[in-house]
C-alpha cells in the first residue's frame, strides 16, 4: 500500500474508510463520472498523487498534486434497480477533492 503521504501531499483517507462522492456539476473538465456523484463507497486503495486534471485541461500546472483513490461501490448502491447479485461491485479512480468522509 502506498505511504500515507507522497512528496508534500498527504492522503486524507485510508483504505477501508467509507466515503461519499460529492454531488454537483461544476463546469469544466471533470474526471468524476456523473453516475457516481452522491454515491457511497469505500476507499479500496491509494493510487498515487497526480496533477489535477481539472486544471491541466485548461493549460494550468495542475499543482499542487491531488491524491487519487480507487473507490469501491456496491452495484446495488450505485443502481437502485441493479439486477445482478448483491456481491457485484464497481470501482473507479476518484480524486480526493471529490470525496467526503461519512
Amino acid at each position: 500500500m502506498p505511504e500515507a503521504s507522497q512528496g508534500d501531499v498527504t492522503y486524507g483517507f485510508a483504505p477501508g474508510q467509507r466515503v461519499r462522492v460529492k454531488t454537483g456539476d461544476p463546469p469544466g473538465h471533470i474526471r468524476t463520472p456523473a453516475y457516481l456523484r452522491g454515491k457511497e463507497g469505500v476507499i479500496e486503495d491509494r493510487q498515487g498523487v497526480f496533477r489535477n486534471p481539472e486544471e491541466l485541461a485548461f493549460g494550468k500546472t495542475g499543482l499542487p498534486k491531488k491524491p487519487l483513490y480507487l473507490v469501491r461501490f456496491r452495484q446495488h448502491d450505485v443502481w437502485p434497480d441493479y439486477s445482478g447479485p448483491g456481491a457485484d461491485t464497481l470501482s473507479a479512480d476518484i480524486y480526493e477533492h471529490w470525496l467526503e468522509a461519512i
Partner: peptide, 30 residues
C-alpha cells in the same frame, strides 16, 4: 457499468451468480 452481466453475455461470457463481477472504470491516471 450498469448491467455488466448482460454485456458480458453478448460477448458469450456467462459469469455464475456466485462469482462477483467487479467493473473497473478507469477515469483518471491509471
Amino acid at each position: 457499468v450498469a448491467e455488466p452481466r448482460a454485456v458480458l453475455k453478448e460477448f458469450g461470457t456467462e459469469v455464475p451468480d456466485d462469482v462477483e463481477i467487479k467493473v473497473v472504470d478507469s477515469t483518471a491516471d491509471l
